[in-house]
Simulated assay, not measured.
Amino acid sequence: MSDNFDPDVSLEGEELSLQTVFPTCKSIRQYEGADDEGGRHRIVFEMFAGLRVLDLKGMNPQELTAESLAELVCARVECHFFVKYDFQVDADNRPLDEECLALFAQHNVPFNVWPYWREIVQSACGRMGLPRIVLPPHRLQKSATVAVSKGSSNSIGPASQHG
């Protein structure tokens, strides 16, 4: 929280603005042989999410520079999540495909992290004396269908885009 911001005094009659960073993957690490038998791989996704609370003091955010917006930040909540998944691998014990992992990190991991991120934002803002901020539930959006080739159980890829 900003040193010159007192939520009990500064928020009277003020309207706050929120800026958020949706949970985003920062790194993916693969570990072979995550169990004693060596038939599983452990994947660790490092995810980052952020939120900042701005006291715009009646100013239009579209007219402000990044530097002047940074001066209006009265509180921020940032979090790194390390999300572990264990995957069963084929008999060749090959690492999982990088493209598949990137798609998984973009779509599945944020969905799994979202409830924890919502709770962190709500509880951190309450502890800072800010008004209760409740992020909405994460809703799945239909962005692509998946085609599975009948010849191979490992051939999965986007078939078409839907809006």
Rank of each mutant, 00 (worst) to 15 (best):
P61N: 09
T65C: 00
N60D: 11
V53L: 03
L51D: 01
C79P: 09
C74G: 13
H80I: 14
M47E: 05
L54N: 06
K57Y: 10
L64V: 04
E63P: 13
E71A: 13
A66G: 10
L69Q: 13
V53M: 00
R52F: 04
V53Y: 01
D55K: 15
A70E: 13
L56A: 04
G58A: 06
V77L: 03
L64G: 02
T65V: 02
V53S: 02
A75C: 08
P61Y: 04
Q62C: 11
D55L: 15
M47F: 05
G58P: 00
E63K: 15
V77S: 06
V73M: 07
F48G: 05
F81G: 12
L56F: 04
L51V: 03
H80Q: 14
A49R: 00
G58E: 05
R76E: 11
N60W: 09
G58Q: 04
F81N: 14
F81S: 12
G50E: 02
M47I: 13
V77D: 04
E67I: 03
A49N: 01
E63V: 10
G58N: 01
P61A: 07
A49I: 00
F82S: 12
L51C: 00
E67M: 05
L64D: 01
L51S: 00
G50S: 01
E71M: 11
L54A: 04
N60T: 06
L51A: 01
K57H: 11
F81C: 12
V53C: 01
A49E: 00
L56D: 01
S68N: 09
E67G: 11
R76W: 06
Q62D: 14
V77A: 04
L51K: 00
S68G: 05
T65I: 02
M47Y: 02
F82V: 11
E78R: 06
F48T: 07
Q62R: 14
L72H: 13
M47W: 02
S68Y: 04
S68K: 10
A49L: 00
S68R: 10
A75H: 07
F82L: 13
L64S: 02
V77M: 05
L51T: 01
L56Y: 03
T65M: 04
L64P: 01
C79H: 15
D55P: 07
H80G: 11
A70W: 04
L56S: 02
Q62L: 14
H80V: 13
L69I: 15
N60K: 06
C79T: 13
L64W: 03
H80L: 14
A70D: 11
R52H: 07
R52L: 03
L54S: 07
A66D: 15
L56N: 03
E63T: 10
C74M: 08
R52P: 02
A75W: 06
R76D: 09
L69G: 08
M47T: 05
P61C: 08
V77Q: 03
S68M: 10
M59I: 09
